[in-house]
């Protein structure tokens, strides 16, 4: 509990009687005066959110209008759900939605358990220095930019002089032209994503692991539990709340696949499997200047994402005690 301004009446004693009467009638006016410096400090932040966050949210109305740059938002005519219909009826609708969903789904299925496994393995290391070393090294890829990660992927997988194809040749296999084969795209994307974020993802689980009561382990050892049993009955239940929370958040992000890496890795040859909603929106919206259509697509997926996280949270609250709200 905050005890900030334990005596809210005190500072007002300086005011004249008239002002006192006025502030007594409007308590919020008194609070406004009391907090004027805090509000001033918050002002830049408030402006930022109003302009750059709520401005665009308001700008979503162009999804329902025939927006043109010359007429501006207000003067553009209303077209209702025209662009939503256009998207749903377009031949791109199903492939783009499927690609986005499948990429997000594979990322969840493989990318979500990976940090948990790594955290459990790191937790079993008994030498403190080695433990730190593995942690530190595994966080590193998280700080490499997507451009560089994409560059590394493309060059390592290149059929001319790429490391991976060198290895394939050395062990007597055929070269694979990874980047132009659509079937390889999801594998490449998901595994590179795991490489980038597995270490960073362990932090929250390792924090949860360090909070597990050591007495539980001692007691179980006396009862004859081995390390596997301890992991199953103490460690995993101990970090279950963290696992559930992260799972809910990840489910909410299924359709929100980062634009950058897909955009950098996809080529027109692989669009069949690589083109996702955000890259499609970018191409339609900015390259072709079809602003209203692109905004409608974005809103469509935004709403689906929101429903995903709502239902994941609802489900988790029903079956366990953990939820975001």
């Amino acid at each position: 509990m905050s005890t900030y301004r334990a005596v809210p009446g005190k500072p007002q004693t300086r005011g004249t009687p008239a002002r006192k009467a006025k502030t007594a009638r409007y308590p919020w006016l008194r609070n406004l005066k009391r907090d004027k410096y805090l509000l001033l400090l918050f002002l830049p932040c408030l402006l930022y959110y109003l302009i750059f966050k709520y401005g665009p949210i308001f700008g979503i109305v162009i999804a329902f209008k025939n927006y043109s740059l010359f007429q501006g938002i207000w003067a553009s005519e209303w077209v209702g759900l025209k662009y939503f219909k256009l998207f749903i009826e377009s031949p791109d609708f199903f492939p783009v939605l499927r690609n986005t969903f499948l990429l997000g789904f594979y990322k969840l299925v493989f990318g979500f358990p990976a940090p948990i496994l790594l955290a459990l393995l790191i937790n079993e290391v008994r030498n403190a220095f080695l433990k730190r070393f593995v942690q530190t090294v595994s966080y590193l890829p998280h700080f490499i930019s997507n451009v560089i990660v994409a560059g590394i992927i493309v060059m390592f997988l290149s059929p001319t002089g790429g490391l991976v194809n060198h290895v394939l040749e050395a062990i007597g296999l055929n070269k694979i032209t990874f980047m132009v084969e659509p079937d390889w795209f999801r594998t490449i994307y998901v595994s590179s994503d795991i490489w980038q974020h597995i270490g960073w993802g362990t932090i929250i689980y390792l924090a949860a692991l360090s909070a597990v009561d050591p007495q539980l382990y001692e007691a179980s050892r006396i009862d004859g539990a081995n390390r596997w049993k301890q992991t199953l009955h103490i460690t995993l239940p101990g970090i279950a709340p963290a696992i559930v929370i992260i799972l809910i958040l990840d489910i909410g992000k299924i359709l929100e696949i980062g634009f950058e890496k897909v955009f950098l890795l996809a080529t027109p040859v692989t669009y069949g499997k690589a083109d996702i909603i955000s890259t499609y929106v970018y191409r339609v919206g900015l390259t072709n200047a079809n602003y209203s259509y692109a905004t409608a697509i974005d809103l469509f997926t935004g709403i689906i994402s929101f429903l995903f996280i709502l239902s994941a949270n609802w489900f988790s609250r029903r079956v366990s005690d953990n939820s975001l709200w």
Binding site: L32, L38, L46, K53, G59, I60, D298, I309
Partner: peptide, 30 residues
């Protein structure tokens, strides 16, 4: 500061943007 005027409102306003945003195009237009 929990008892700042409008504190809850501001916090809600901020957290809401984590779950819903205008998207690429409206942000670009702003």
């Amino acid at each position: 500061k929990r008892n700042m005027i409008l504190n809850k409102t501001f916090l809600l306003m901020v957290v809401f943007t984590m779950f819903f945003n205008g998207g690429m195009i409206p942000t670009y237009l702003v």
